[in-house]
Nucleic acid binder design. Structure first.
Lengths: 301, 301
DNA sequence: GGTAGCTATTGAGCTCGTCTATAGTCGGGG
DNA sequence: CCCCGACTATAGACGAGCTCAATAGCTACC
């Protein structure tokens, strides 16, 4: 037979009181029970743990050696229970988050920084990937949360809307249209030279669809693979680009130019696997994201 | 309810296999049993430990946190069982030994050195005290073993004879009787000047009794409180002393002079508390002491 | 030698861990 | 679209063993 926690607790009590009767009282069991269980433990370990012949019960050498480890084991279990509470407190945990690339520019930064500031004990794994990949990884449980656009999701994916993202034409200080008086008719877009994200970005496809619908063929002067690159380019060159309004808010030197008609807006959603379980960290991040969206909607609308 | 070791083992198995059925097979229990026990553990801890909704079972944050401590606790218990075996192997342990003062000179040194060399993992506490004190401390369980003389012991003390110690007159190189031809009649002792242990030593009382029985009154020139002091004094001064033969064997510059009749010999015994339990260390020390006595008797007799 | 204070033993009772059988759930394939 | 296979959850019965009260056995002390 193997020792059980009961045996450890009983042994420690007897060792502490040097007395079976007293220990039994503290443990709220009868003294015969205690005698039997200690004997059982001794049999399980194959050694005498207590010297009962002296006036007061004393640990044998084997007993002292074992008691040390027994105490340690019980301490570990207590620590484990505290650790579990810590997780509930969000003072521990881990969150695997993925976003589609455009969000890195204006959403991931502030959101993750805020979350980390509130819950420094939760480790974060943030990565960029395509929306398809995000959904697949959520289903395979390689991710906890994703941020992407509303649309047709894979079965098993749960999507909750966060906010509405609107795209707009954006120019920098060196652009001749910097002080354009009113909304720019879409037909005039053909006159502009643009810097845009590459075609493998969902945002780019969204923009291309808009152009196609209005039969406009703008001149693409530059293609880049990050929003950051675009803002840098537009700040320094007389080019226009198309960016989420939120990005423009963060860059005072960028000027939004309304289009007529406006680009269709997209709904940004929080994605997760449909499941009964959601980690405390994931729930908390969801709340922070919703809060962020609320304040974002206020400033942008 | 509190978590039991069973719960820990079950949880670790499920976490490892990421599958209840497989884990149940390894644990040799039925799958329903495993489900029930894991659920019980989760209830005890107040958190969900496993995420059962994914394709493969996965630990939740709380689960990973707890598993860490569970592993640690089980490791501690395994270490405890090894430690217990170590004690049986004499690779751990502790021994509290007391000797009456004269033994320190020739017996404690070699015996303890030998024992320590064989069992370096056993810590030793060696002290000198009077025989009465040794027996009292044995009964109060403040000592494991004592070395003293046979005689009337306190009730509850168990004595096992080790060897017979004979005392003899001893002179150093500067003593005129250094080349004494034969045994020295006791009556002639009155001519000698002696260096002896002080009166509170059992050995001194033993010697005084011998003198009294033979109506001799030797001249005590020096009284010392250690055998070491006596050997040093006799080596350098033209004085005689009375020492155990074994001491003389260890000092080539000391010469034993037989007395006629010889001093009564005393039996050296190993003392311990009468009890069913004796530590492995104490048993081992007893054996080493008996061995030492055997070889000692050969060289001296 | 009797008594007080402990621990060990005994036999009955009942909790609870375990089992078998079965229902519920989720994906994947025809 | 429904069935099938793999897996986990639930239900009820059984039995091992923990626990208890009563008591015997032991040791020290007066």
């Amino acid at each position: 037979m193997k020792p059980e926690l009961r045996h450890l607790r009983y042994l420690l009590a007897v060792a502490e009181h040097a007395n079976f009767t007293r220990a039994a009282e503290e443990l709220r069991v009868s003294q015969p029970t205690l005698s039997q269980q200690i004997r059982q433990l001794e049999k399980a370990l194959g050694v005498q743990l207590l010297d009962r012949t002296a006036r007061a019960i004393r640990l044998t050498d084997a007993g002292s050696a074992y008691v040390h480890y027994a105490r340690s084991a019980l301490r570990d279990l207590a620590a484990g229970e505290r650790a579990v509470l810590d997780v509930r407190d969000l003072s521990r945990g881990h969150l695997r988050l993925a976003v589609t690339p455009t969000f890195t520019a204006y959403l991931t930064g502030p959101l993750v920084a805020d979350f980390h500031a509130r819950h420094p004990g939760i480790t974060l794994d943030v990565r960029e990937m395509t929306q398809d990949r995000i959904e697949a990884d959520l289903l395979d449980d390689r991710l906890d949360l994703g941020i992407a656009f509303a649309g047709d999701h894979l079965p098993g994916i749960e999507a909750t809307a966060l906010f509405t993202e609107t795209l707009g034409l954006v120019v920098g200080p060196r652009h001749p249209d910097g002080q354009h008086p009113g909304p720019l008719p879409v037909a005039e877009l053909g006159d502009h030279r643009l810097a845009l994200l590459r075609g493998d970005f969902a945002t780019r496809r969204h923009i291309d669809r808009y152009f196609a619908e209005h039969h406009v063929q703008p001149r693409i002067a530059v293609e880049a693979d990050s929003v950051n690159a675009l803002t840098e380019i537009v700040t320094r060159a007389p080019l226009a680009t198309v960016l989420p309004d939120a990005v423009t808010h963060d860059h005072p030197q960028l000027t939004p130019i309304p289009l007529d008609p406006a680009l269709p807006s997209r709904t940004v959603t929080l994605l997760c696997r449909r499941s009964t379980y959601r980690s405390a960290a994931a729930r908390a991040f969801g709340h922070r994201a919703a809060d962020w969206a609320r304040t974002h909607d206020i400033t942008s609308g």
